[in-house]
């Protein structure tokens, strides 16, 4: 077993266990299934790197290492997009929350000053 496998396999197993555990929560089933499959694929690729070449050939790529490279670039791209959308959404929600607080506070102060006068 190579040094890389020695490091990667335990790491992947831990990730796999964490996401597999979430499979039992119905609300998160689909996402945890996706993650679980990803970790399983990662484990297989690390344990038997030559097999990745077979998979690569199926989709028209010559080497397994290239397949991993392309798919990780693709994965990061999609991931970045999803995260930035989520950030924008969150920023929007913060604005709405800030607005509600500001308007409530303004009304409270107005009511207070009317009471005082």
């Amino acid at each position: 077993m190579s040094l890389f496998q020695l490091v990667a396999i335990p790491l992947l197993v831990v990730m796999l266990l964490v996401s597999a555990r979430n499979l039992f929560q119905r609300a998160r089933f689909m996402t945890s299934l996706a993650w679980t499959l990803l970790w399983v694929a990662g484990l297989l690729a690390v344990i038997n790197p030559n097999e990745t070449t077979e998979v690569a050939k199926l989709v028209g790529i010559r080497r397994g290492a290239d397949l991993l490279m392309y798919s990780s670039v693709l994965g990061f791209g999609v991931g970045f997009y999803v995260v930035s959308l989520r950030l924008r959404h969150m920023s929007r929600e913060i604005t709405l929350l800030t607005r509600e607080v500001a308007l409530l506070e303004a009304e409270r102060k107005t009511a207070e000053s009317i009471q005082r006068s």
């Binding site: 913060i94 604005t95 800030t98 607005r99 607080v101 500001a102 303004a106």
Partner: peptide, 13 residues
């Protein structure tokens, strides 16, 4: 009348 955003959200907001 002052409406106060607790944090800066930008001019549009």
């Amino acid at each position: 009348v002052v409406v106060r955003h607790v944090i800066n959200r930008g001019q549009g907001a």
